[in-house]
Amino acid sequence: MRGTVGVIANPIAGKDIRRLVTAAGHTSDSSKIDIVKRCVIAALQSGADRVLLAPDPHNLATRATAGLGGRTAVIDSVVHGSRDDTVAAASRMWKEDVGALIVLGGDGTCRDVALGWPDAPLIAISTGTNNVYPRFVDATSAGAAAGFVASGAIDIATAGRRSKRIATTISTADGIVDDLALVDLALIEATFVGTRAVLDPAAVRVVVASCASPASTGLSSIAGRVHPVDRWSPGGVLVRLAAGGRRIRVPLAPGSFTTVEIAEVLPLADGQRVEIEGPGVLAFDGERDRRIGPEVRVTARVEATGPLIIDVEAVLLMAAADDLFAEREGDDAQ
């Protein structure tokens, strides 16, 4: 439906073990509810006909929209309290013809959204731990930008940029599985997924990054300190780590610096295929995800086929230039 803004809020983002062993911050449910509420109100004030929200086991969406009127709806589907909820919600948003999708979470949440809707028109708000892909953006501004884009008042072709992703193919004896990361894919020398966080620098073997900035935190910061790659430029970078390599200090988690040893830096052209060999655990966007045995073949390539990122400030500047903030009849009723 034209004019629909979607909202997906990951209820467990920002609450993992890294609050305990690093200086990562906690994002409470009440904070997320307030952020969602600001997004919804701003979207409805800025041209959106409807805001469609993903259901969640914490009822963040339901509580955020209580009393906001009939132009909000929470998708009526069963949730399981897992990553699959986010993937399913993103897919449903695509089917509902959502014009702009707001996501609350970190890099891992955005990856799940991309799994469900690969080229989603996206505004990602940081409420996670490693926030390379999402931006620290004011929720009211994000909602307003989403409203203008979803309504068609601002053309997304002028206010959005295609992001990159790391397309990954995992070949096992049971078949081939396609997966993706948005920021970084890593091979960790580990046996278990456990708490999912990557905390041991000595266990990191390979990092493939689509964007690598020295101003980032997490696995991509390793590459960012030796071979920065802008988030909008083509290609990426692969870094291999091994004892005896160049010793670099990196923030592997918020406020947590450690030394890694870099043995190889390989710039990657757009679409260039690289292979990663197990055994170990693959980490997608900073989270240990699945164990691979020595027989598993993993290929990865960085390509510009990720979600379409909506530039919030650019949208609002265009809205100001087009006089879209002028009061209209019925504004007070919203």
Binding site: I12, K15, D16, I17, R18, R19, L20, H26, F192, V193, G194, T195, R196
Partner: peptide, 14 residues
């Protein structure tokens, strides 16, 4: 600080 872990995963709890 407070953290959530999967209580059905003994490695995560550990």
């Amino acid at each position: 600080p407070g953290v959530i872990v999967d209580g059905m995963d003994v490695v995560a709890v550990h």
